[in-house]
Design a protein around this nucleic acid. Structure first.
Lengths: 194, 194
DNA sequence: CACCATGACTAATGGTATTAGTCACGAGCG
DNA sequence: CGCTCGTGACTAATACCATTAGTCATGGTG
């Protein structure tokens, strides 16, 4: 396959993600992305299927990045410690890559885009795997995963939007929030601070 | 002040909210809103300051509606019961008015738009008032409010986006999720189902 | 060396918000 | 009773965005 040098798909996604992290996902436009690459807008159609395709690629990338961040936590050791490490990895991801985190959010129904669905499911499966190996107060896994996800997403999303008035003490508020869920899921009475 | 009959601000917002609830906030465009009213697009500028002004009005409305829903719950009785009622009211609001709930989400910094900031703060203050009257395991109110908000928003947002695979049992998952937070905040050991 | 796929481009279309300027109506005052 | 003037609609024009169609130069492959 003969090729020009031009830009690659990775170049396009990197440019788009830079814009997303700096100015929000809504600022990721084909015009802006092309301009950042020194390219004309229609040329992007050679790499991604329009704006929709670009957003899909960003979501694939974001899902993979979050799954990688999850897999990087040590799954050994005390259950509560592993869950806390997962939670911190989640929040760190949302803080360091706000544009990527934002890109991940829209859900996709199974069967609508199987590759994308699988990618977005990856991080969830990591949590499921951890919770499966842990002695839960309630043996039903599904509500436990949902509660854990809800707290992580809710906290990260509110923080990303600046929903917490004062920036002070957000770290310890996060620790307490996840301890509520983790200790509750494990059936402990008192939150054990780290 | 002489006046035409024409459409009123409420008409505009009602039309916009109908679109938002049915097809998502992104579908709320000046063209669509005007068309739903049988009006030309520029005429909307007589009622709201463009698209940005329309969105601001929707947020004001949404914040007021959520605050009203919160204030409608009986603040008397057992603390855990009151908190659960607040949580259910929150989720009910997000489910019944998805467009309005979506409109509320973007946060606003204090000083940027004081009226809007105050409106968005209203529902939070209701939660604060309830938690203030309740014997918390940790006397610090701020992290407690944050944990409560995070769980509510996270669950409602994931549910609204279709983030939970199976639609089954979402009700009981929600009950368990909020019980984790509520019982933890109140210092109880075991989640007490309703 | 000729071929041809790749990846850039220009040109044109349609939808969007926005601004400027216009105009008809109707309530209230003289 | 009629004039005035503010309200709220309108048309026209501009700018930005995504998208499609069609063109063209390049460089690796046969």
């Amino acid at each position: 396959m003969g090729a020009k040098v031009g830009v690659t798909l990775d170049d396009v996604l990197d440019a788009a993600l830079t814009i997303a992290d700096e100015r929000g996902l809504a600022a990721v436009t084909l015009t802006e992305t092309a301009s950042a690459l020194g390219i004309r807008t229609p040329s992007l159609y050679n790499h991604v299927g329009g704006l929709e395709g670009l957003r899909r690629q960003l979501r694939l990338r974001g899902a993979a990045a979050l799954a990688m961040a999850f897999r990087a936590v040590d799954a050994g050791g005390e259950p509560a410690h592993v869950l806390r490490a997962l939670a911190r990895a989640y929040r760190r991801f949302a803080r360091q890559r706000p544009g990527l985190y934002e890109a991940i959010q829209p859900a996709v129904a199974p069967g609508e885009d199987d590759q994308l669905y699988a990618a977005l499911q990856e991080p969830v499966l990591v949590v499921v795997d951890v919770l499966r190996r842990v002695p839960l107060a309630d043996p039903d896994l599904i509500p436990a995963v949902r509660a854990f996800r809800a707290m992580l997403h809710g906290f990260a999303d509110l923080e990303r939007r600046g929903g917490f008035g004062m920036p002070v003490d957000i770290d310890s508020s996060f620790e307490m929030s996840i301890d509520l869920v983790i200790d509750g899921l494990l059936g402990h009475a008192q939150p054990s601070r780290t």
